[in-house]
């Protein structure tokens, strides 16, 4: 077992004097992760995702409960554990923008005790794996955000960690860059069997990266199952938003239901278990004066609401 969390809980005290109150960020979280798994850890903002990651990496002690990561207690043996885990916090950079990634890697490699030969070999390997060799020798400030995140990913993989923790890594990236990043994470897992634990509040991160999903809300685990199962049970719908060139009165929707219609826009919900999205889109493009069309996932809040609905019924 790579990660074991056993009734982990953590509270914070906020405010001063009279405004003082205790916030239960994480309450009784238990789960295990096997080597080589790709686990998405999802929940809305403030659900306790980051707090959980911080406990599992050792930078936060739990209020109660226990955990082992690669056989070590993270908060008691943090320093020893750092050699075997990699962490990427989406909003914190390890690279210096004025320098090239390779220059920063030399420093980070030295901090992790890698000799130059091993570092060079590893850098070349990661460059090929992440399609990033040509990014390594230009200053980070000239990178796009997507390019920069790939270089950040390489930075936390230099010491060949067995587990990679990714905390909201795709935040702020555009659609293509997000997809590219997800591809790289999967590729890494498949090539090197690195265990992946990824937090996100983006439904697409789960669909494309994870094979298993843990949903937490208000600090509690509310769902833990394979992504396939979740897809069947909760991601069975897609939203299609259509912009029109001119108003239309009536149209055929093939069985998708219209949730909103105005002069120049239509929003439909498709049950993908019954009907492939593609068929609906084809039909719409054929029959309507479409100016603009997008397919979106239901927001995470809707998924969580339906998890609660299913549980209570």
């Amino acid at each position: 077992m790579t990660i074991v969390a056993d009734r982990l809980a953590r509270s914070f005290v906020t405010g001063r004097r009279r405004a003082r109150r205790v916030v239960e960020a994480v309450q009784g979280l238990s789960f295990t992760v096997e080597p080589g798994e790709r686990v998405a850890f999802i929940g809305p903002n403030g659900a306790g995702k980051s707090t959980s990651i911080k406990m599992l990496t050792g930078i936060l002690h739990p209020t109660s409960g226990d955990a082992t990561v690669l056989g070590r207690c993270p908060w008691r043996e943090r320093r020893a554990l750092t050699r075997d885990i990699g962490t990427l916090f989406g909003q914190r950079s390890q690279l210096w923008t004025e320098l090239t990634p390779r220059q920063s890697y030399r420093m980070l490699g030295a901090i992790f005790g890698l000799d130059d030969r091993r570092l060079d070999r590893r850098t070349a390997e990661l460059g090929a794996l992440l399609d990033a060799e040509d990014l390594f020798d230009v200053p980070v400030r000239t990178h796009s955000l997507g390019q920069r995140m790939r270089c950040e990913l390489a930075a936390c993989l230099l010491h060949e960690p067995k587990i990679l923790f990714l905390d909201e890594p795709t935040i702020g990236l555009d659609l293509l860059a997000k997809q590219r990043f997800r591809e790289m994470v999967v590729r890494l897992n498949e090539a090197q069997h690195t265990t992946i634990l990824l937090t996100s509040h983006d439904v697409a991160d789960i669909e494309y990266v994870a094979d298993r999903v843990i949903v937490i809300n208000h600090g509690r685990l509310i769902y833990d199952d394979s992504v396939d199962r979740m897809r069947r049970e909760y991601f069975a719908t897609k939203l299609i938003e259509v912009g029109l060139m001119h108003p239309v009165d009536r149209f055929e929707t093939l069985g998708a239901s219209v949730v909103h219609q105005s002069d120049l826009s239509i929003r439909l919900v498709v049950d993908t278990q019954v009907l492939p999205v593609r068929d609906v889109v084809d039909a719409l493009l054929e029959r309507l004066p479409v100016a603009d069309l997008s397919i979106v996932d239901p927001p995470l809040e809707d998924v969580i609401a339906s998890i609660y609905r299913v549980r209570s019924s």
Partner: peptide
């Protein structure tokens, strides 16, 4: 090992200063 890491950190930082003339 730690000392060589610190030395590398110092030289990298020096390089950063030189990169901003």
């Amino acid at each position: 090992m730690t000392w060589s890491a610190l030395a590398r950190a110092a030289t990298t930082a020096a390089r950063r200063t030189l990169a901003q003339p």
